[in-house]
Design a protein around this nucleic acid. Sequence first.
DNA 1: GACAAGAGTCAACACGGTGTCGAAAAAAGT
DNA 2: ACTTTTTTCGACACCGTGTTGACTCTTGTC
Lengths: 202, 202
Amino acid sequence: MVSAPARRRGPSKGDRKQEALLETAERLLAVKPLAEIGIEELAKGAGISRSSFYFYFESRQAMLLALLARASDNLITQVEGWLEPESEDTRASLCRSIELAVKMWDEHGSVLFAAQNPDAPAEARQFMADLTGRLVAATEDMINRKRATGAAPPGPPSAHSLATMLVGMTEHGISHNNGALGQAELVDTLSTIWHRALFATD
Amino acid sequence: MVSAPARRRGPSKGDRKQEALLETAERLLAVKPLAEIGIEELAKGAGISRSSFYFYFESRQAMLLALLARASDNLITQVEGWLEPESEDTRASLCRSIELAVKMWDEHGSVLFAAQNPDAPAEARQFMADLTGRLVAATEDMINRKRATGAAPPGPPSAHSLATMLVGMTEHGISHNNGALGQAELVDTLSTIWHRALFATD
DNA sequence: GACAAGAGTCAACACGGTGTCGAAAAAAGT
DNA sequence: ACTTTTTTCGACACCGTGTTGACTCTTGTC
């Protein structure tokens, strides 16, 4: 009776069903690749019929894009913090950044993994390329600053190629480490390699 | 007419058709992922009907396994040369090994790339895991030898985690470098990172 | 050079998953 | 209450896969 009428800003039924589909998808992606997930399965997980799925998404691929869009804000915010505060001790700063990358993967790994699958739609792969590109660009800037102050030796290798390989190693190391290495060892190994690659003179 | 009769070891017609299928597959894999290659397409490429394909292979996945088996000998031979001759100058030796990896990729890249796709059959992924495992093991041994002689500083990071990350970086760097970096720069960057990661003291 | 045996071929079929359509039910405004 | 818009779903068309069984072509043998 006291039901607050006020703003009817409740998400409509459709919004909730769409969200249920996305959550089901994310749950299933943690277990098997996108190509092995049937529309039926998705629909059942959200309590609707198979053909109703198409009311919400054009295809399985389109749903992946929606999943990426949903994660995007969070992801981009975190990427902005990547390597920024360089005032502090260098080694600890590297650890923090790599831990941030691990965290990003913990939160969105299954979606990101699906998006980098070779037969994901081009837009999804572009999204991943952009994300990686931001990381590389930030790393490149950091290297150039360190080199300018003499803290890091000059190239070759160029800041760009160094950044590309280190970011690639980090993404690969994190996403393909299936419990083989403990998280602490993983972070430690990666940050050691980063540190040596950036600051060691041969 | 001097056609040496001797051994009638000519590959039977079927053998030739099977080979034609494998070659068609390899050619197509260079262009698009396995999942996007239809049986029809493969069959047409070998000049047979779609249903004849199944005389040769149980499925597209089974054909991928045959493709791997075909590359396997060559691949394993090359892996055995990986990091072996450690007598010479360290830096040049690293370059040689990485160039070898680039060469392996040039020769078999499209098949290896398909085999590491998440929805490739488990056996294909196992093959890739084995191959990577061999590379990691060889690297690990090399690190341990260098550490034993004092040429490289002791861990942490452990030889194993270091080897895992470096090999991973190399595979990733090579397989995802789509002409972005020239081959010389790629090899140079990778070998610099290897060298610093292995021999630099922090 | 005829003839079996087996190697290779393919049209026709069954099946399973995708995506579309239009009619009907449910929800939301007025 | 009744109109509009949102949501649902059964029925259908379509496409690619994999199977079957009858056929033809090779290949070796006497």
